[in-house]
Amino acid sequence: MDAMVRELSYAQAIQEAMAIAMDMDERVFLMGEDIGVYGGAFQVTGDLVERYGTERVIDTPISELGGAGVAVGAALTGMRPIFEFQFSDFATLAMEQIVNQAAKMRFMLGGEVSVPVVMRFPAGSGTGAAAQHSQSLEAWLGHVPGLKVIQPATPYDAKGMLLAAVADPDPVMIFEHKLLYKMKGPVPEGYYTVPIGKADIRREGRDLTIVATSIMVQKALDAAATLEAEGIDVEVVDLRTIRPMDKQTVIDSVKKTSRLMCVYEAVKTLGIGAEVSAMIAESEAFDYLDAPIVRLGGAETPIPYNPELEKATVPQVPDIIAAARDLVKGVR
């Protein structure tokens, strides 16, 4: 019998996944700043402290480096910590533990250990929090062998990928766009996983492949609905994992549509778009391209406070529509 499917928000889906993980495995516990009685800055942990107690839902001091290191050490010695950063920007304070320790420990010790830590990063702009609380730094971590980096775009994937992350023996970094927390969608009850390293074709189409990540998946789908009325049939690929990247799904899609656009919120240069574009240029799909590849990414500026400026720094639905038209009509 199929599990009961309800409408849950993205934040509720993550919370449910954490509760299931703690129910299933007593080694799983949560750490982070103000995740206990406060419920987390974005209310993702919510009332979990009431259900699981302060020994399994641990409020840390404001010590991102130390906290991340404690999570790494606990994972190294048999526990399964889920560490919440209050904002993904604060990963900058903990890069040492993430990049030098968590990512490399297994390798440096010749496979004698593993570090099954999950780190959650509320990311992205759109909340008026300005330059130090709005960044999209997933490509930074995606550059590091030893880490797995995922960006679920729906409540369903948020739950399934978090449960996959907890079950994974290696460090998994989850970037959760803050504007997605309130997004609702169907989520089955109970345990299920969505595999890390597999992209998802969210909309099939013939004329153009849009590879999108995180919140840009929904924006690409919204753009595709408009473009459909104009006779432009868009295929939307939700990358879901940026390391290890599901190259084959993207290659196959581009071979079908012969056009590629990458849409992501992080700063445009040296990012996911460059990686996907280069990957296609190096693949057999290159010969199928009918037009230059297009990247739509964040502006080359910090995220501004003013709401109109803030919106203008990241790709919006009209930007995607305009770029898609130009690409399909050969303007570019």
Partner: peptide, 23 residues
């Protein structure tokens, strides 16, 4: 649990190992 090339890198990790011991 290992030497460490980063000065101070092992200190929080030791605290994590001690947290495991306690839990």
């Amino acid at each position: 649990l290992g030497a460490n090339g980063i000065v101070g890198g092992g200190i929080p990790i030791a605290v994590g190992a001690a947290l495991s011991s306690k839990m």
